[in-house]
């Protein structure tokens, strides 16, 4: 009952906004602002046909690859930096610099050495996503309890167990925070990298539609990206609730 009510509460505003859009745009004659019904009608024929294989899946694969690589690299480097005060001193200024570069700025440079293929797009995604993961993980590793570390030493946990049971789990609340930030950055960079120079992908196709004045199709691309973003955020929340069940429980008990 409470779940139902909270779901309804969360869904109320989105439903209202979409309804408003639907009603206001109904019968619109504007070339650039087609009725929402036209846009929705375009979704299936535009994206679930040939383009599913040609554009949607390649985009999602780049997203998944870039995001996974950024997570792995960010977590490993973050743990190393978080655990070593010396390494932190060396790296901190550089990290601050790297973090404050807007990743799209790097696309022209990355294109120079990585070309315009999938590799370039994955590198762009990684180069933007890795920082929030890395910095949050470093913070998380630093925050792992002293007594817990002593406990792990006293009971002679081997390196693999220390990594898995102490470092990874201990830093996991921070890692998840970084991963959540990185996910939205990943989607943005996936689209932007495809807009720059590409021959397929969601961002590429959407820009193509705009340039060929296929306006309802362009809108449907934007809508699809929105739906993908929301779906990924929901999936992330499910994983988070599972991985951090102990953390939320611990906080409720304090």
């Amino acid at each position: 009952m409470r779940l139902l009510r909270s779901t309804l509460t969360a869904a109320a505003l989105p439903v209202a906004l979409v309804t408003a859009w639907w009603l206001i745009s109904r019968g619109s004659q504007s070339f650039f602002w087609p009725p929402l019904s036209d846009i929705v009608a375009e979704l299936r024929p535009t994206w679930l046909g040939e383009r599913l294989r040609a554009d949607v899946v390649p985009s999602l694969l780049r997203l998944a690859t870039g995001y996974a690589l950024a997570l792995a690299a960010g977590i490993l480097a973050g743990l190393a930096i978080g655990l070593s005060a010396r390494l932190r001193q060396y790296c901190e200024p550089v990290l601050e610099f790297c973090r404050s570069i807007p990743p799209p700025v790097l696309i022209p440079i990355i294109m120079l050495f990585a070309g315009i293929g999938d590799q370039m797009k994955v590198i762009v995604i990684v180069s933007g996503c890795v920082w929030p993961v890395l910095l949050n993980t470093a913070e998380g590793a630093r925050a792992i309890d002293e007594v817990l570390r002593d406990t792990a030493r006293v009971y002679r946990l081997r390196p693999a167990a220390r990594f898995r049971h102490l470092l990874l789990r201990g830093a996991s609340p921070h890692i998840v925070t970084g991963a959540r930030q990185a996910l939205s950055i990943a989607i943005i960079l996936m689209v932007i990298s495809e807009m720059f120079a590409a021959s397929n992908g969601l961002g590429f196709a959407t820009v193509q539609f705009q340039r060929s004045f296929a306006i309802p199709q362009m809108w449907s691309g934007i809508l699809l990206l929105g739906v993908i973003g929301v779906t990924l955020a929901l999936a992330f929340k499910l994983v988070e609730n599972r991985v951090l069940a102990w953390y939320f429980g611990l906080r409720r008990h304090q």
Binding site: D145, L148, T151, Y247, L250
Partner: peptide, 12 residues
Amino acid sequence: FQEYGRSLFPWM
């Protein structure tokens, strides 16, 4: 340890 709350792994 004295700090029992901090010496048990809360995720286990």
